Simulated scan of single mutants.
Amino acid sequence: MDNIEITKEWDKVFPKSDEVNHEKITFKNKYGFSLVADLYEPKDANEKLPAIAVSGPFGAVKEQSSGLYAQELAKRGFLTIAFDPSFTGESSGEPRYMASPDINTEDFQAAVDFLVTNDKVDADKIGILGICGWGGMALNAASIDTRIKATVTSTMYNMTRINAKGYFDEADNPDARYEMKVMLNNQRTEDYKNGEYVRAGGVVDPLPDDAPFFVKDYYDYYKTERGYHKRSLNSNDGWNAIGCMSFISQPIIAYSNEIRSAVLIIHGDKAHSCYMSKDEFEKLEGDNKELLIIPDAVHTDLYDDLDIIPFDKIAEFYKENF
């Protein structure tokens, strides 16, 4: 039996819009975990709607960026859901604060299950949107789920690449990976002995003066009033130290070249992570794929900056490809 508690009050980091209806919903993935989501829909909708499932960033919750995206797209005519992935937020899954290439891809597919069977949704017009690490997961889901007609990624991370190779691929060699595996497996032993999982820590706090820019960028979102949320892993103690270990040897997006549905990849040209979107785009095939680079935008600008995130473009992309 799932032990989940669903918050009834509005506790997002962004204001509630009076242009949409909002409700909390739940659905199960194929592993039996209950996923909790916020559903947004245009007010006074009187016909079946195209629908979009949204998640991310990696280590965030639906009360942060994904909810903002979902609400903004609902204002533009879509039924949307922003969900907490398994093991995080209000969704179920034990132990807490774990990640999985398989289960997290399944989370997106379970969201599609919910949407295609919803009486308010046009089942032939389903899209997904992944932010940060969930951008890579969205591409992974699109490569296996033919019900997904269009996919958008925003400020994307490939979680296999970052875990196996490090930032900017600086640890892309067998010796570096081996040392990391030794460290993680030693931690597994300690966790088992102690009967609890050590957390890796979220965004560093207090922020050192010599912190790299991308760390300062994350701090500005997750650790300040701008984006802090009490259930967010990144805002607090982070993932379990071994929580992302399986990504090292279980690659995602292995068959992105076989995605036949439409894909729009969006990234800021000043983002430390931009190379990941550019490289993933190069793997895509077909004339329904698009790369949109936003001038002067850093990684977290695409988390919440309404003046920078191209919501009208995103909505147009979905409508054209449904």
Results as ranks from 00 to 15, higher is better:
P15A: 08
L284T: 11
A262M: 04
N236E: 14
K125D: 09
V121E: 13
K319A: 05
D175G: 02
A141Q: 01
K319G: 11
V36Q: 14
P57D: 06
R260Y: 08
R147Q: 08
D305Y: 06
Y97A: 10
A37I: 04
I248S: 10
L284S: 05
G56R: 00
A110M: 08
S100N: 09
V116W: 06
D304S: 12
K283I: 02
N194E: 14
N158R: 02
P295F: 06
D119G: 12
N185I: 02
N240T: 09
P85K: 13
Y255C: 04
D169N: 07
S246W: 01
R177S: 03
C132S: 13
N236K: 12
F247I: 10
Y178G: 01
G77M: 13
D209M: 00
E258F: 00
Y318M: 11
I242V: 15
G67S: 01
Q71R: 10
D210I: 07
A176V: 02
V116I: 10
S249G: 15
R161L: 08
N186H: 05
P42I: 14
M156H: 04
I128M: 03
K313D: 00
P206A: 06
T146Q: 12
I314P: 00
Y69C: 11
G133E: 03
E170S: 14
V215T: 15
H272M: 07
E316M: 04
R76P: 09
D18M: 05
